[in-house]
Structures are given as C-alpha cells and as structure tokens.
C-alpha cells in the first residue's frame, strides 16, 4: 500500500516528489498483481468430460459390438458450448482482466484448435489421436501451473508428458483406459485442489 502517500489520492500535484511517484507506481503495480481469473471450473468440466468419454469408449470396445465406439467423444461438443457460455458469464462479472488472463485464454483456445485439427487429420497419423492429444495437453497444463504458481498443475503437465508418450506403445482399447487415468491425475486431482484454493 502507499502508506507514505496521501491515503486517498484526492490531493493533486502539490505533494508528489519523484521518490513518492516511484513508490506510488510500484504500489499500484503490486495491487494489480495476482489477479489471474479462477479456472478450476474448466479443469473439472473437461476432466470429467474426457474421463467419461475415454471410459465410455473402453467399455463399448470391450463389452459391446457397437460399430463406432468413438461416438462417445461427441459429448465434448455440448461441453464446449457449456464452457463458452460459462466463459462469457465470467467475463461479465470480472472487474479486471490482466495480461496473464489473456495469455491463459489464448493458450487454451490454441490447444482446442490443435485438438480439432488432430481429429481432422486423424487418418494420416494412424488414428493416434488420443496419444497425440494427451501429449499436447501437457504444455498448456504445465504453463497454466506456472502462471498460477500452482505446483499440482505443473505435475499434471508432467503426467501428460509421460502418459502421452506411453500411450503410443499401447493397444487401442488400453489407450482409452490409460488416458482416463492420466486425465484423472492431470486434470481432476489438480482441478479439485485448485477449487479448494480459490475459495
């Protein structure tokens, strides 16, 4: 706080000397810090969505004759709509938006675009879509952890780097089971911890 200055800043030029000016600038920058918006909602929303989709595909492959078990991933479409609606509502209630918020938003939007493109070109990468997405998930998760100074998310990123690599070596149905486990560890566990810390 700017205790050495006028506490209410109502006075004008008369008392401000260069040292006070620098103190004021430093204290205001300090005030604006640490305003990264709450993001646990997204980790929990996407965590549960992807875990359910992966487990769903695994169960359909293992125990049924369904022709296209991958249809389970269609649940990501309504969830994307939910995420957009939630994001718009959040934007309306936030009184400040920091540069970090902007970077955070575009980092994940870019990741979303990457996911869509990977699904689109799936045929050309031998349908290794799941390992690719889990591997790509590592970077935005890790960076979000760095931005929020939240170690569990950084560890979540590490889980995705390891799991994403391991997935390439597994059979298709096993990939879905391990991906569900990785998402639980990399998204849901840090997501719940983050939600607790946001309260």
């Amino acid at each position: 706080m700017f205790v050495s200055l006028n506490p209410d800043m109502e006075k004008q030029n008369d008392t401000l000397n260069p040292h006070q000016s620098l103190d004021l600038i430093a204290s205001m920058i300090q005030q604006a810090k640490g305003n990264v918006q709450k993001s646990s909602f997204y980790f929990l929303l996407w965590g549960w969505t992807i875990v359910i989709a992966n487990l769903g595909v695994y169960i359909l492959i293992k125990f049924t004759d369904v022709k296209n078990p991958f249809i389970m991933f269609a649940i990501t479409i309504p969830m994307a709509v939910v995420a957009v609606i939630y994001n718009n509502r959040q934007n309306k209630t936030e009184v400040v938006s920091t540069h970090l918020d902007k970077i955070h938003k575009w980092l994940w939007a870019g990741f979303g675009l990457n996911c869509a493109l990977i699904v689109f070109v799936g045929k050309f990468i031998g349908w290794m879509v799941n390992p690719m997405i889990v591997l790509m998930c590592a970077l935005p998760t890790f960076i979000t952890g760095v931005m929020l100074k939240f170690r569990p998310l950084m560890l979540g990123g590490l889980v995705f780097w390891i799991a994403g690599t391991v997935l390439f070596f597994l059979r298709v149905e096993e990939q879905f089971l391990v991906a569900a486990l990785a998402i639980s560890l990399g998204y849901l566990v840090p997501g719940y911890m983050l939600r607790k810390s946001e309260k």
């Binding site: 205001m28 604006a32 810090k33 305003n35 009184v95 938006s97 540069h99």
Partner: peptide
C-alpha cells in the same frame, strides 16, 4: 500504473 499492469479494468 494500474492500467499499465492489466489488460483492462473497470
């Protein structure tokens, strides 16, 4: 100084 540090503020 506040606006320097953020993208936008109300």
């Amino acid at each position: 100084s506040l606006l320097m540090s953020v993208e936008s503020a109300e």
